[in-house]
Design a protein around this nucleic acid. Structure first.
Lengths: 173, 173
DNA sequence: TTAAATTAGAAGTAATTACTCACTTATGAC
DNA sequence: GTCATAAGTGAGTAATTACTTCTAATTTAA
């Protein structure tokens, strides 16, 4: 992976997540990355190929978001951390999530698979905590957290902290 | 409002909500609506003007979705109906919501105002039900329902009914 | 009947787009 | 040093886009 190729991916990630996939022209990317437009197609063949390259980086990093949860054993602590996850997302991770969400609505790509590990882990937590229906309980919680991160991404949160506390209380963790 | 103008709005609504605003070409709309392309610009001046026209219809109808709630007086029944709202959305209303959501991510338009009435009503319900913090309680619930309708729209729901029951139980209604 | 509004249809425009191609420059193995 | 391969350039292209403009037909209402 050359420096220029990295730069192209980086810039594309930034611009796709800000302006959307279709609305971002390849020559704009080239300009911003200080690279000839032809190079984009040499490396990625297509604009779609570029998107794939960007998505690989995206998925790799989003997966990493869930790694710290592996160290937690106590169910209540684990659940608390799962809930808190979308509330304290760093800038980089927010960009990855922003792109994934944008694509979900723009292209309709299959994203669910990235979140399968966290779904499974959440389900396990509810099992340990003897919830009646851990599966649907997990789906409900992830639904909520999905909504939370959407709001965070779009900066539409009036009262982030209060909602967080509310959820912590609801799940008694 | 002539028939052709109505037809243009109708087709644009359909195509915008399916393929997005920017990805839908005006000549495609004209073709689908069986109308000369020039007519679109005569009626709406711009593509943006067309979007405005479509959005007006959209907002008018989405507002209507909440009207039946006005008849309900008993807080528990009202809350139950608020929760159920996104779970049994008709085809037409789903299209309006789909467009609004797509635009939220594609253009970043201001949509929140449409949902202000339902937010207020939800807050009132929680007040009547003596919840500790009705405001944040309302925000949390609407967050959830927003997630629900997103999943419904995108057909990503593994277990719609179970999540619905889960929420009904959680709020004890 | 007549004037005004609506519409079709076709051609054209300037801008933008994804993508190509012929070419040059670096890199590394022998 | 040589030579193949990869990295990089930048002008060019064909297609698409939103939008205009013209004329002529059709509909509507007074």
């Amino acid at each position: 992976m050359t420096e220029k190729k990295k730069k192209i991916i980086d810039v594309a990630l930034e611009m796709f997540s800000e302006n959307g996939y279709k609305s971002t022209a390849t020559n704009q990317i080239a300009k911003e990355a200080k690279v000839s437009e032809g190079l984009i197609f040499r490396h990625f063949k297509n604009k779609e190929g570029l998107l794939k390259g960007v998505l690989e980086v995206c998925e790799r990093n989003v997966s990493k978001m869930f790694d710290p949860l592996d160290d937690l054993k106590h169910p209540k602590v684990l659940l608390k951390n799962i809930i808190s996850l979308p509330f304290n997302t760093g800038r980089d991770n927010m960009r990855y999530c922003k792109l994934l969400n944008k694509l979900k609505w723009e292209v309709g790509g299959e994203i669910e698979s990235i979140f399968e590990p966290i779904r499974k882990k959440t389900e396990e937590v509810f099992e340990l905590m003897k919830y009646d229906d851990p599966k649907s309980e997990a789906e409900t919680l992830l639904l909520i957290l999905d909504g939370v991160i959407s709001k965070v991404i779009l900066n539409k949160f009036e009262s982030k902290l209060i909602v967080h506390d509310n959820l912590i209380k609801k799940y008694e963790v």
